[in-house]
């Protein structure tokens, strides 16, 4: 299919997009259409159609290309402004509210208590205040720390929230196992510190922690969006409102102001502490904070002229 003649498609596409103000989105659509039409034309040519006819047929089969191009012009802007009013944001949040399931909350609290008890048990056992044989301590660590941690992590990811969909079971289990491995690895390392003659414990701990780091990396890299459409739209809107996002110079200026304000405030604090004393020198820090907040307010919400 690589030797298929695709010049007909390029010409027909250029015709269809002729005289249209090109946006990056339309450019994208044109390239996407090119790839897809080429694939279809190549398929037709394999069946014995000649290049010109195949290109023509591919375009015809696509349907109304002018309407498609027109539809990529308008509605985006309208949809973007739909969220603008604060009322609709509040309404959106209420409409999309998902209450946590009582069962999940109870499970999480109970397991967190178990894990807390397990962690609280470690220092006295390791320092010898409670005498526990190392194998038994390891079993306790696995059952009371690693297991609850893993279960809580997986369980939380399986919950649908107001802003996120539930993660697929396999991914939630993956995160749970990885978190459990990390907890077990760290706890095993701690047990080794209490009984340094058991070198295999150190090795096992390191292997588990490294495996968990690899696992988290893999899970992080393969993670796809889990946010609900309304939350994504809100996020986009906030990004548009952020004055620092599209003005790096303002962000840099703000950074420098921050440094100057706090250096002066700390210097003032030091000088006043030496000259007048601690009774009044803290006012320099308060003054610094006030100036910092005012600067922040002026830069994030500029006065409209």
């Amino acid at each position: 299919m690589s030797n298929a003649d695709t010049s007909g498609i390029h010409r027909l596409l250029d015709d269809a997009f002729a005289g249209i103000t090109s946006t990056s989105e339309l450019q994208d659509l044109k390239e996407e259409l090119r790839g897809n039409l080429t694939a279809r034309a190549a398929e037709l040519q394999e069946k014995g159609m000649d290049a010109g006819a195949a290109a023509q047929r591919a375009i015809t089969e696509l349907g109304d290309i002018d309407a498609l191009i027109a539809s990529f012009g308008g509605p985006e802007a309208v949809e973007g402004s739909r969220l603008a009013s604060p009322d609709s944001v509040v309404e959106l949040m209420q409409r999309n509210r998902v209450r946590p399931k009582p069962g999940f909350v109870v499970r999480a609290v109970v397991l967190a208590l178990v894990a807390a008890a397990g962690i609280a048990l470690l220092p006295p056992a390791l320092l010898g205040f409670i005498s526990v044989a190392t194998p038994i301590l390891l079993a306790i660590v696995a059952a009371a720390i690693a297991l609850p941690v893993g279960v809580v992590v997986a369980d939380s990811l399986r919950q649908e929230t107001s802003q996120h969909f539930a993660a697929p079971t396999s991914r939630a289990v993956g995160f749970g196992l990885t978190a459990a491995a990390m907890a077990l690895g760290l706890a095993t390392g701690a047990v080794f510190l209490g009984d340094t003659s058991q070198l295999p414990l150190l090795v096992a701990g390191i292997v588990l922690v490294v495996a968990a780091i690899v696992g988290f990396t893999w899970l992080g890299v393969t993670q796809t969006n889990r946010m609900k459409p309304w939350a994504l739209a809100m996020q986009r809107q906030y990004q548009e409102q952020d004055p620092f996002a599209d003005d790096p110079a303002a962000a840099a200026r703000f950074g420098m102001y921050t440094v100057v304000i706090w250096v002066l405030a700390l210097a003032g604090f030091a000088v006043l502490s030496v000259t007048i004393g601690f009774a009044w020198s803290w006012l320099a820090i308060v003054a610094g904070l006030v100036i910092f907040m005012l600067t922040l307010a002026r830069m994030v919400f500029p006065v409209k002229r």
Binding site: A4, D28, E31, R34, G35, N36, L37, F165, R171, N225
Partner: peptide, 16 residues
């Protein structure tokens, strides 16, 4: 060769 293809991948949100 030919046109580049735009691929689509389903996200976790999409699966849900």
């Amino acid at each position: 060769q030919g046109g580049r293809r735009k691929y689509y991948r389903i996200t976790d949100a999409g699966r849900a």
